[in-house]
Amino acid sequence: MGVTVLQQFPTENRTGPSTIELLSKRISALGALQQGQFLVDCETFTSCAALGHQRTVHVLHNSEQPATVFSILETGQKTIPLATDGLFDLLMMKMSGFYSSKKQTKAESKGPRYEIGDFCVKLGTVTVSQNFRGVLVEVEYRPCVVPAMCWELMREFLQGFLGSSVPATPPPYLQNRMQELYTPIDTIHQYLEQFTIFRKAPGLRP
């Protein structure tokens, strides 16, 4: 598990599939080989009024860690991340009386997964309740575990195939954790951050 950077790629009047195809061509031209598909999904539950102060639970799955369910509880003051077994999904179903899911906010990002050298690149089409919202590019540099050490290197790699759309600073979530050891839950936080932006944004044409 290495450092992962997640960023949006502007579609600029292109459709979702054509954007993915453009990026696929670029990364293949660099020598990347496709290694299957990936999927990250996110479902959000809110507590019912009877529990008092409203809390939100985001439940996420990542195909990179297929046996784990990640959940992030937002109480208003605190954010509590939790990594659990697959059974957590069933637990949430049992608790449907207390936590109800907002069906229209189910977000997911899926698409091809590429490997190039020690990098792993994922080109995701983002949909929020089945509507196309944009393109997310995830790049993982697997040998390194501290974001501060390899951010410059990863930025160079991102610029190599995304061009000028690469920001000069790391994703906001990572900025406070540049010196810490990177763990899979950090990737989940970045996805949640992006999904929240997509949910708020007005719908794009598919």
């Binding site: 050298g117 020690d118 540099y141 040998p143 390899c150 410059e152 290197l153 790699f157």
Partner: peptide
């Protein structure tokens, strides 16, 4: 500084996807 130092000669971090 394996991941953080750029190459002294070409000034880049990556060459052939390796630092």
């Amino acid at each position: 500084t394996l991941f953080s130092a750029p190459c002294k000669r070409c000034g880049n971090h990556l060459l052939g996807n390796l630092p």
